[in-house]
């Protein structure tokens, strides 16, 4: 599904700003990968670069999606392929209601794929159903998207979008940060209910906490722009116990 090859990334227009220093990663269909790392390790950058954020420049390497390079594709075209990024800090969009925004997103993707657009009626039904499923106050979806929402409300809206758009590859960028246990459970339930043999997840997180609820197939430790260790779910538990310290020296010598 996704293959990252020796990916090196710098910040656009800033010299000596390399953040990712040669990442190799392969995510197969149906797998859930967790990318763990301390602050500043580059894990959020990786999530954003996968989605095509224009603030970064790829200096070396490639990203293949279903075997084809996507590094030259615009963010919207990556979305049309079936990629999705749940943002750590979702933007506030005054005057645009979540309903409107999601319908526009679905329509744009249908257009790009040459598919038929979902009727307003079917969309409304799906939307209402998902609003309830992710535990959003129905009054809230009548307001502007993310404007004045609490951190938890914003994250629930990211999950709402995830569940409505049903991507084939979902990247969750620290979706667990700032969430209480109830919200965390909702996020986890959302991901777990969507797990399927043809849908993959990349879960970027600082803490092991979320992984108590979502059992990853593979765990990667990212330190200073490099993946320093890859293992199974037990690796996350080890990080929980020992912190990132034991891996720092590995990173330095790699």
């Amino acid at each position: 599904m996704l293959e990252i090859q020796n990916l090196r990334v710098s910040v656009l227009d800033i010299d000596d700003s390399e953040i990712l220093k040669g990442i190799d990663l392969k995510v197969n269909n149906g797998e859930v990968h967790a990318i763990m790392g301390p602050n500043g390790s580059g894990k959020s950058t990786l999530a954003n670069v996968l989605m095509g954020r224009p603030d970064y420049v790829i200096t070396e390497g490639d990203i293949l999606y279903d075997g084809k390079s996507i590094v030259a594709l615009l963010p919207e075209h990556r979305a049309h392929l079936g990629m999705f990024l749940a943002f750590q800090y979702p933007a506030e969009i005054p005057g645009v209601r979540p309903w409107q925004f999601l319908k526009a997103a679905l329509d744009a993707r249908a257009d790009a794929r040459g598919e038929e657009k979902m009727s307003v009626r079917d969309f409304s039904k799906l939307f209402d159903e998902k609003v309830e499923a992710v535990g959003i106050n129905p009054q809230l979806v009548k307001r502007s998207l993310n404007e004045g929402f609490s951190g938890g409300e914003k994250k629930r809206h990211e999950m709402l979008q995830l569940e409505v758009l049903k991507p084939e590859l979902a990247i969750l960028d620290e979706t667990d940060s700032g969430l209480d246990v109830d919200a965390l459970r909702i996020v986890a339930e959302g991901v777990n209910s969507m797990r399927s043999p043809d849908r993959s997840f990349i879960i970027v997180t600082h803490y092991q906490r979320l992984l108590n609820y979502i059992k990853p197939d593979v765990v990667h430790i990212l330190i200073d722009g490099r993946i320093v260790k890859t293992g199974g779910p037990e690796l996350a538990l080890k990080v929980e116990k020992d912190g990132y310290k034991p891996y720092t020296s590995v990173g330095a010598t790699a």
């Binding site: 963010p75 919207e76 979305a79 999705f84 933007a91 969009i93 997103a105 679905l106 744009a108 758009l165």
Partner: peptide
């Protein structure tokens, strides 16, 4: 970028 990541050009 947020909007574009959802597929809106």
């Amino acid at each position: 970028f947020y909007l574009r990541s959802r597929g809106v050009d």
